[in-house]
Design a binder for these strands. Structure first.
Lengths: 230, 230
DNA sequence: CTGTATACCGAGACGGTGTATCGCAACAGT
DNA sequence: ACTGTTGCGATACACCGTCTCGGTATACAG
């Protein structure tokens, strides 16, 4: 067997880095949801074996952490906002938009403490915007309360959106009559208030109701910030 | 072969029902978290093969749905509360307590629309408590906003609690100095507001901060219910 | 330049997972 | 007593995250 018969050694696979790994994982998750992300498939996208990844992460959970932090780069506003209220509001809306772009984010939101650099930068920017408006404890409570609200609201919105998508019914249609299960339950008469709500409520789009709830919470925060506690 | 040699026919396995299946699954989840729940292990607890379960549920996700609904039975308050505020507050606290008893609930909260009988009963009771205080749309927004808050707050609380448990450090210790990663990040000087928050904040227990945030949100709701919109 | 030590890469294996299939055994009807 | 039907669950399949560990490519010593 002469040299001419022997092929050149295959070009060594491009060296990996976390950035490329995370990008591949996010692409997979955007296409098929979180459950479509497997270390094998991520590695395959990078022409590597699954074990190759373990040099960069030591657990699948860590990959998820990296993905979440990566998305926080999209959430961090490019310019410092005017007042604290605007800061909190845009953080909420940008998080929501990120979750609409990357639905899997909803599955991860609030699931683990976020300590990545981008997430920390987002927190820093938020805290900076509220700095000095009240004592530290009140400020923290404010940030956490708003955060709890939008985390929960986003999760529910995405959950509803998925339900709509895979029943093929709008939320309203589903509730009104088309969802056989709910229809049966309401027909029992055991849920009068719920029935009334289902039939009489106006259909409002998700963004509007997110914004409304957010404004309420921001009003509450404003009231507490205005009057620093004893 | 006489009767004496022949063994009695094996007692037919006890017939299953969803209640027993869900109870087994919840027991498993309480002990080892959601990831300890596998159809095989659930079935094993009931002396059955995994396929046996498919007569009662058709997907693992459905088992989770049943588990969540089962826990809602613990959440439903036994007696009708006095006023709407009390109703919303006790719903929030009872959900939180349920999540402390069943930590896996935090992983599922807000993940999918809850349409089970117990969850519907909880919603019914909540809506009934607010009935007539404002137009339906405002009432719904109120319920959803409070729900978003406590869902998000509970998830974060459980996430922090787990982090504390498996780092062995209290949240405060971790942040202050012991968490090597965070310490390094703060040392960069890129997070001044965050640093100040970490070092100057008073440590408050989780229940108190949950309750405080909840009260803020309830105040906001009160303001909107008082003055029905045009 | 050669021989050896070292580091690391990744194929394969392992013990699990959720679920589809389908042979067989237990029952119901005649 | 025989037959038709039903439903159970053993087996199978495809895939998962991660451990082990043999082999090879590299770095270094002589």
């Amino acid at each position: 067997m002469t040299v001419w018969d022997r092929p050149e050694p295959p070009t060594r696979p491009a060296p990996l880095d976390r950035e490329r790994i995370v990008a591949a994982a996010i692409a997979l998750a955007d296409e098929g949801g979180l459950e479509a992300v497997s270390l094998r498939k991520v590695a395959a996208r990078l022409d590597a074996g699954p074990m190759r990844l373990y040099g960069y992460i030591s657990t699948k959970q860590e990959l998820f952490d990296l993905m979440v932090d990566e998305v926080h780069a999209e959430i961090l506003p490019e310019e410092q906002p005017g007042d604290w209220r605007e800061a909190l509001r845009t953080r909420a809306h940008r998080t929501r938009q990120a979750a609409l772009r990357h639905e899997w984010l909803a599955d991860l939101l609030g699931g683990r403490p976020t300590l990545g650099p981008n997430a920390l930068a987002v927190r820093e920017a938020t805290l900076a915007a509220l700095d000095g408006l009240a004592d530290i404890d009140t400020v923290l409570r404010a940030v956490e309360t708003v955060g709890a609200y939008f985390t929960g609201a986003i999760r529910r919105e995405i959950a509803d959106l998925r339900a709509e998508r895979d029943t093929g019914l709008s939320k309203r249609d589903f509730q009104r009559a088309s969802g056989p299960h709910l229809r049966k339950m309401l027909a029992t008469g055991r849920f009068p208030a719920l029935t009334k709500a289902v039939y009489d409520a106006t259909e409002v789009d998700a963004e509007a109701s997110f914004a409304t709830g957010l404004d309420w919470v921001l009003d509450a925060v404003a009231a507490k910030l205005a009057r620093p506690p004893a």
